[in-house]
Simulated scan of single mutants.
Amino acid sequence: MENSEISLNLDLRSEILEKSLYTENSINNLLMGHLGIFDKEKTKNFGNKAGISFKSKTDLLYDLNILTKEEVLDLELQMIFRNKFLHDLNFNSFEYAINKLDKGLINKLAKFIDNNEEKNIEKNIGKLI
């Protein structure tokens, strides 16, 4: 499929980006609060030139018993979808994304869905964003 034929679905991509930005900001604030850091502009790890990856932040929150294993899994899935939708033109719908996931990600997604009452994949993925 040529680039000119791909529907970008900017509404969905914008929603995913917006939710991801709020999630990352919340994770930063949660971690900074537990570490006693109150001015993120004066740190190397939480300011504009953040040095700690999102995954490392969630892992640290898990190690500190602030996040559960399930919460870390939810956040990892959210970032996987965020990266797919924001870095790959072809990822313009959840249906496409689900069909392109590798087996390891499908297993993670299945665990996420098993942890929710509703078993509808589309509705559960929507809860990630």
Rank of each mutant, 00 (worst) to 15 (best):
Q78L: 13
L31I: 15
R82I: 01
I52Y: 11
I106K: 05
N83C: 08
L86S: 10
K69L: 13
F38S: 15
N28H: 03
F112H: 04
I27F: 07
L64G: 04
S14N: 14
N92H: 13
N115C: 05
L31Q: 13
L21K: 10
N83A: 06
N48H: 12
I98Q: 02
I98T: 02
L61P: 06
L35Y: 14
E41Y: 08
L60M: 13
E18P: 07
H34F: 13
S93K: 01
M32I: 11
H87M: 03
K57H: 12
Y22I: 14
E41N: 13
Y22E: 11
G104M: 07
L77E: 07
D63V: 03
D88W: 03
K55M: 12
K69F: 12
S14H: 13
G104D: 06
I66E: 06
S93M: 00
I27N: 02
E18S: 14
Y62K: 09
F38V: 14
K49P: 05
L30F: 15
F81S: 03
L61W: 15
S53Q: 07
I80L: 11
L21R: 09
E41F: 06
K49M: 13
F91T: 02
D114Y: 06
L73K: 04
S56F: 10
F112C: 04
I16P: 00
L61R: 11
K103R: 05
E76K: 10
A110Y: 04
N25L: 15
N65R: 10
L86T: 10
L61M: 12
Q78F: 07
K44V: 12
S26V: 10
M79P: 02
N29K: 15
S56N: 15
I80C: 04
A50M: 08
E95N: 08
L101C: 03
Q78I: 09
M79W: 08
N25H: 15
F94M: 05
K42H: 07
E70S: 08
F81I: 06
K40G: 05
S20A: 12
G36W: 01
I27L: 10
L75E: 03
I106H: 01
F38Q: 13
